[in-house]
């Protein structure tokens, strides 16, 4: 089945209405007052005049022209003392130490892996920051360097934590916990990083038999539920299981649930709804109530209804 639709119509552009925004330029006045609090609601547009460069310094996302600080991206204004910066909405992932990320190996190098983590540069995973078979405290030997591809090879997905930053700004990852490591039994969906809220835990289990890993870099891993007793314990570190690329048997219902969750996340991301565990649960329940087909979730009408229902509940 194939159907054709039209591109959404661009907002009607009238050259004579385009100059209107000079009138509501009260932001400049606000910023010059000392008690200005960035509300976070106001979005800048590129080229918008924020304030005078005499009173304020330009930060990220701004530039100075004609002694005025001007936004260069769409985003929210942030002010620290006299420093004005704009945090962009559509941007690559800006890592912070301790963040949980999902990444994909792009390259195997001497004693390190390069990992694509939706950041400006590839992240680095050192051989010394992964758990190796034969005990956590084991020293790395030369034979480990020679068989790095048995742990992670190109294209492999992994979940890791941001450990530190290098001088050039690239992030260093580690997987030295039994929660982290190679991913299997599921599929990846990618959304803008700004939509991932920081949560108490980024490992979610939905009651429909689906495990979710919300990487703060916008990569989300959706997989079959791992039972608690099957999770490897500290003493039972099993290299076979941790670095295995073989999927378990996955039944039809689980696959359907994984696809359904994938589509829900895509729809929410398309409507720019920030993702949290409660939002996902509500959305999943709503979709189940509708009893529609999985692929229908992606249709514009159902997506619209879903987002309306979600925002009505909160």
């Amino acid at each position: 089945m194939i159907t054709f639709a039209s591109f959404p119509a661009p907002p009607e552009f009238d050259a004579y209405l385009g100059t209107k925004h000079y009138e509501d330029n009260d932001m400049e006045v606000d910023l010059n007052e000392d008690d200005y609090e960035p509300s976070g609601r106001k979005l800048t547009s590129p080229g918008e005049v924020l304030t005078s460069s005499h009173a304020f310094m330009r930060g990220h996302g701004t530039f100075v022209e004609n002694e005025e600080v001007i936004a260069s991206v769409t985003g929210t204004i942030e002010r620290v003392n006299k420093l004005i910066s704009v945090r962009a909405i559509r941007t690559r992932y800006n890592a912070e130490v301790g963040d949980l990320v999902v990444g994909r190996i792009t390259e195997v190098q001497p004693r390190r892996w390069k990992v694509d983590a939706n950041s400006r540069q590839d992240a680095v995973l050192m051989l010394s920051s992964v758990n190796l078979p034969g005990g956590v405290q084991r020293r790395k030997v030369e034979s480990d360097e020679l068989q790095m591809r048995t742990f992670f090879e190109e294209g492999d997905l992994l979940v890791a934590e941001v450990q530190a930053f290098f001088a050039d700004g690239a992030m260093s990852l580690h997987t030295r916990s039994l929660k982290y490591g190679k991913l299997r039994n599921g599929q990846l969906v990618s959304i803008p990083p700004v939509l991932i809220r920081r949560l108490k835990s980024h490992f979610l289990s939905l009651p429909c038999g689906v495990d979710l890993i919300l990487g703060l870099n916008g990569y989300i891993w959706i997989s079959k539920l791992t039972k608690a007793n099957e999770q490897e314990g500290e003493e039972g570190f099993d290299a076979e299981a941790v670095y295995s690329s073989r999927n378990d048997d996955i039944n039809e219902a689980t696959r359907a649930a994984v696809s359904r969750v994938t589509n829900i996340i895509r729809v929410l991301a398309a409507h720019f709804v920030p993702l949290t565990d409660t939002v996902l649960l509500d959305a999943y329940e709503w979709v189940i109530e509708q009893e529609g087909d999985i692929k229908d979730i992606l249709s514009p009408e159902v997506g619209e209804a879903l987002v309306t229902a979600i925002s009505a509940q909160r």
Partner: peptide, 29 residues
């Protein structure tokens, strides 16, 4: 490039009855 696990996940879903794709489409959609 995708990982071996992703590849086999997609392949086994295509072989299943009824076949299912990552976004819930049928084979000929």
């Amino acid at each position: 490039s995708i990982s071996k696990a992703e590849k086999s996940y997609i392949q086994s879903a295509l072989e299943a009855t009824p076949p299912l794709r990552e976004d819930g489409r049928s084979l000929y959609d």
